[in-house]
Design a protein around this nucleic acid. Structure first.
Lengths: 142, 142
DNA sequence: CAAATTAATGATACTCGGTATCAGGTATTT
DNA sequence: AAATACCTGATACCGAGTATCATTAATTTG
């Protein structure tokens, strides 16, 4: 599965370097959202630079391999995307655990049926949405 | 209406100082979301310090006079709250114009009826939500 | 396979939003 | 008017992220 992402890199004309391999490999180990700083702390002993980590995560995001997560703490968190599904960039319906940060995506878009009605009433031309539900996931909820 | 907010400050035991008056006054002039930096740029010639602007906006937010807006550009934007309504802190259903940044709040929470169902299916205990619709408002939509 | 070319790297300095500190100043209390 | 809070501006600082740039590594070309 790491191989799959390195393929994507090569296919798009990016070079498959040692730092990039290390970053992709590290990233694939996280189940929960992570920051660039965390990745850097794991890889700096191998000689991977901070700037490279930031650059590479940004690249992986642009390639839809990672999704960005706003955990409201002011800094970027990333997570492996559910990007193999039909619309990689349109995962706007999420449910986020406040304890562990895990994110699930809602299969059905509960808002879909309401959008037309809202557009009419608000006078807006609605183009997109971003729905985050917050709560506690089953394994954190004791 | 500025008087109303200065009242709120006094009522809660905060002092009504010249910098605070200037900030509240400036803030009340904005129709669109604004940043602390913008406020500071307007008031520094009057001798108001940067730290004071940040501190005061934070305070006004804590008093529910301002709402925070995440415009996805990495920095805080504020806007005068619709805080006189029943739940000042629970305005999680918004519609945001991508052209001018203006924000409207949806009176009815279209998600309310779906939450129980989502909770059951996802296994999460749902505590809150944050819904942003993006689009173009009527006056920007030509 | 070697040389030329192009992309990627790590170090560093820097930006930017925001916060902590702290001595001096200004409201309020007595 | 004096005491006591609180608030202020200046400054230094922090953390996330980016720009620069000389060096290095991957690819392309011969």
């Amino acid at each position: 599965m790491v191989a799959h992402w390195t393929e994507t890199l090569k296919d798009k004309g990016f070079r498959l370097t040692a730092p990039r391999k290390a970053i992709v490999d590290q990233v694939s180990r996280y189940a929960d959202p992570f920051t660039a700083e965390e990745v850097y702390q794991h890889l700096k002993k191998q000689g991977v630079g901070r700037a490279t980590v930031f650059r590479t995560l940004k690249l992986l995001h642009e390639l839809d391999i990672l999704v960005r997560v706003h955990l409201e703490e002011g800094c970027q968190h990333y997570q492996l995307g559910v990007a193999t599904s039909s619309h990689p960039e349109h995962h706007h319906d999420r449910i986020i655990c406040r304890m562990c940060g895990s994110i699930s995506y809602l299969d059905e878009c509960p808002m879909k049926k309401n959008v037309a009605d809202i557009a009419k009433r608000s006078g807006y031309r609605v183009q997109g949405r971003h729905l985050d539900l917050y709560g506690v996931c089953r394994s954190c909820d004791q």
